[in-house]
Write a protein that binds this DNA or RNA. Sequence first.
DNA 1: TTGTAAGCGTTATCAG
DNA 2: CTGATAACGCTTACAA
Lengths: 341, 341
Amino acid sequence: MNLKELSDFLKLSPTTVSRAINGYPEVSEATRKRVVEAAEANNYHPSHLASGLAKGKAMAIGHVIPLSKHMVMNPHFSDFISGAGDVYCKAGYDMLIRVVAEGEEESVYKKLAKDGRVDGVIVHGPSNYDARIEALQDIGIPFVVHGRTNQDESTYNWVDVNNVRAFKRATNYLLDLGHRDIAFINGFEFMNFAMRRRSGYEEALHEASIEINPEIMFTGEMTEPQGYESMKQLLKRAKPPTAILLSSILPSMGAMRAVQEAGLTVGKDVSIVTFDDQLSFLQNSGDIPMFTSVRSSIRDAGVRVAEILLDQINQPKADPYHELWEAELVLGKSTGRPVSV
Amino acid sequence: MNLKELSDFLKLSPTTVSRAINGYPEVSEATRKRVVEAAEANNYHPSHLASGLAKGKAMAIGHVIPLSKHMVMNPHFSDFISGAGDVYCKAGYDMLIRVVAEGEEESVYKKLAKDGRVDGVIVHGPSNYDARIEALQDIGIPFVVHGRTNQDESTYNWVDVNNVRAFKRATNYLLDLGHRDIAFINGFEFMNFAMRRRSGYEEALHEASIEINPEIMFTGEMTEPQGYESMKQLLKRAKPPTAILLSSILPSMGAMRAVQEAGLTVGKDVSIVTFDDQLSFLQNSGDIPMFTSVRSSIRDAGVRVAEILLDQINQPKADPYHELWEAELVLGKSTGRPVSV
DNA sequence: TTGTAAGCGTTATCAG
DNA sequence: CTGATAACGCTTACAA
């Protein structure tokens, strides 16, 4: 059943029926009631394609998600997406996802933005210099970046965590406890967030006049095995570091496993501080959380990013909008003074 | 730039231009080349809404994802989705996701199916009796279920793992090793897959004439903390079970943590067998995997489910199609004979 | 308050 | 091989 049929059935014009259904003010209460009831009874739902075409709005937001070489989705996405998706849903928007091979992202973004299927897009996982930003600016479609790049950040919308500060604080906390050998297991450093985290770590060490030691710094895809393997390497050293900083709770689980396998105790023999995105399925909670961490919810980020994008769509001339969040430092069971001190 | 403008520019009719771009056979190679180049040069992309409207195809597949009470997305989704999304992308389809509160799913599915935004939908996480199935059958939209229900399974498309068999084998393996006290940490049993797993476990115990003991059987949301807490409970018992069966690698990580915290060793003091969905971010691999498991890739399931749906869309009169997969039993480091035997 | 008619950007039909 | 014309199902001036 389409609009025409429904209006024939009601002996009304399509116009009136459309107005009634979309809640326009000029239609009388009596007819509105009749229309809505008939629509319900006949199980009529307006075609989104047709209304989108007519109004020039797609009522959808695009996400482009790159698969890594192993064809997997970064697990951090699922929490971000559940936050964003919830916002869209409440506002009547849909989430459109394109999963693409790494490298094709820019062209896919362009196509997505141009073919009129979405009213705005989210940029995930910005690299240090990210061509998507200029591409989207050229096209003129509203977008919000989750994170930042090294490009002029005043020209686009973004929400980011203060990664430099977070990792500086984390490092300082370990220094205060008396640690001097602090390893760092980071994400890939072409990702902007990872680069900033490294800066925070290095700044803190510099200020404490401790030399940076590349031998105890790792980068890679933030997975459980990454943490496990890296930690195993570290424990093999003649003088293993007494503390480790990690970029996500996933490798932290792996690191903990390696420590325990070696018969050592986390929080005593080895201190661990992690960045806790508060992944829903790996809660670092309890009376005293398992891990000491710098914490910021990635789901909340998804919510805010989505809200900001919808705002920008409704006020296209608004100035670029930014939010920089501070991470909490939460003490857990995984840190203590180094034994030898 | 739209089709009309491009065709004016080329001094051709919109028809011809459309045909050239869509690769219809009746257009000459010369004009096709000219058209494609001009489209490229002018950065022309056809409007998906318009073409969808004209062809009556949306070129999108709908997924409805329920948030749990804690507003989080089940992490198993992200792997499933990356598999499905990859298939869609290669076939030129988009993935449309609606994130909804638990309970609203059925009505959202109906709306999604009716408003013409998608050409088919995927049903996730079927419960034992799932009203969505009949709703979608009434509407007449193609759909594929990931899993099954207790309804007549010959009437709809599905892909499922043989959960009964998998958990029966897992239990039998532990029995063969000599275990008699085998605990079971399951998902919520209103989910059909969880119910089937329980059946497999119980069948094996029955056949071995071992009594079912509800005190060592848990159900809940499959998270790390669930495994941790349940395991802690079990270890408090006067005579803790010597082996545990778990429904996902997430609670298994938690269980392992509890065992290690208690100063015990997994694979010696406590044997663990898990169901391994091969979650990308928690690989149970290595020369000898960390966990003994019954294994079936949830990402592969996403791939197959998507492929089947696209097939059904292209051959609307095809009979319902099913695939029942057998899980592998993979031996890892987490199992051994009970110490007391 | 309601209706008429012209779009929105494509594709499909049919004729040339 | 190419082109005019009518859909696709809805919204929106403009009229009544």
